[in-house]
């Protein structure tokens, strides 16, 4: 599981370099996310534009990655392809994430205004 990271204007962008997020990579994804976001700022954008297929294992791993960021940092999503967006929509998990069309759109938002989603703190 390859994840690339970049810091852009104080926001961390994590790009998933895989075309599938399924049971074969879910645990690896969560561990790699913990490693790369160890010193992450308050806002992390997960770029899923290269992911063509996501199943419930991949969905669970993304929820897990958001949980392990803790309550003071937030994971937002960008670039969901239609099959990926469908899984978020059917499970209604799209309502707990801030979801952007793509990374460029995410970076033009200031991050304080939810874009169709609301993250519930604990």
């Amino acid at each position: 599981m390859q994840l690339d990271t970049a810091m852009i204007d104080g926001t961390m962008v994590v790009t998933v370099r895989e075309d599938r997020m399924d049971a074969a990579v879910a645990i690896d994804f969560k561990e790699r996310m913990r490693d790369v976001t160890l010193d992450a700022p308050g806002r992390v954008i997960l770029d899923l534009a290269q992911v063509r297929f996501l199943d419930s294992s991949g969905l669970g791993a993304i929820i897990g990655a958001m949980k392990q960021l803790g309550s003071r940092r937030r994971l937002e999503l960008a670039g969901l392809k239609p099959p990926v967006a469908k899984v978020f929509r059917l499970t209604r998990i799209d309502t707990i994430f801030v979801i952007h069309n793509d990374v460029a759109a995410a970076l033009t938002e200031d991050g304080s205004r939810p874009h169709g989603g609301t993250a519930h703190a604990c």
């Binding site: 669970g60 309550s71 899984v87």
Partner: peptide, 22 residues
């Protein structure tokens, strides 16, 4: 699935059968 649950109480599994049913 219950998206109104706080994030820390969201399950990370169990969506599979729901998707199959849907």
């Amino acid at each position: 699935p219950d998206p109104d649950r706080p994030l820390c109480d969201q399950p990370e599994g169990g969506f599979g059968w729901y998707l199959i049913h849907r």
